[in-house]
Design a protein around this nucleic acid. Sequence first.
DNA 1: ATTTCTGCAAATAATTTGCAACATC
DNA 2: GATGTTGCAAATTATTTGCAGAAAT
Lengths: 149, 149
Amino acid sequence: MNSSDTKLQRASQLFEVYLKRQSLKLTKQRQEILVQFLSVGHHISAEEFHLIFKEANSKIGFSTVYRTLKLLTDCGLAREHQFGDRFTRYESSFETDHHDHLICTQCGDIIEFESAEIEALQTTIAKSHNFIIQDHKLELYGLCAKHNQ
Amino acid sequence: MNSSDTKLQRASQLFEVYLKRQSLKLTKQRQEILVQFLSVGHHISAEEFHLIFKEANSKIGFSTVYRTLKLLTDCGLAREHQFGDRFTRYESSFETDHHDHLICTQCGDIIEFESAEIEALQTTIAKSHNFIIQDHKLELYGLCAKHNQ
DNA sequence: ATTTCTGCAAATAATTTGCAACATC
DNA sequence: GATGTTGCAAATTATTTGCAGAAAT
């Protein structure tokens, strides 16, 4: 990786390698979706994401958005989340450290945080159960600064 | 609470008080569902739970099971979870400490654990964001003892 | 007697898939 | 040219709701 490349360039490269490995094709739609995905805010549902294309008069269909989000998840560029509502939400996981979420039950606001201490404790607990962690999700639900008086 | 009561008796009492407060009625179905819910294993979906009644030739319908699980959640006897599959799963939260989960991505096995240290760290983090925690979910996904060689 | 509940079947909501026309390799 | 993709519409899956008859207060 060349550090003078932009983040988009590095992500595209990873995506293209992944597609080639799986004998999949690099299409205009897939390229455009990756660009948007990296620039768009976090925690977006497939439906919300599709709306962005619709509003930009892009003709990309919902299925393509949906299937491409799955591809991005498979190749490690995206992560899926299910918070309280019943949508599957996606966020970029490219060149970002793992982080967890504070979710306001009043306004739905999502605040991200990282904690090396908690992760260390998780590893200890997993070890004591002879369990190997691949991934984790920690969500704290409650009232954000705006909604506790 | 009388400590010579059984757990079921104590849970029933809590449920009855809740129903009365909400001007809801105590029906045969609701009683039967509570009994089953306390005796049944954890992390059951509404559909799986309904199947138990069906197989016991109980005529309780799916909607009643579904709506009663919601009631149990509302009055604090049950908790909802969404793990990797797309079912909402329920577990008893009556007279049990809050616990978190290790979920095997190979066999779906769920191991429960508690960690006061992690909870303390969560509180610290929340405080630093001026956030008040109402609830939390921590899930560690990976390979259980049987599935890491 | 009034109010709430049940169980069915039908509606909803999000996700997933089949397929004919099209694009990429 | 062979293979994979797109966008539509239709299918699927889990959840939720409307309603007439039944049960609880």
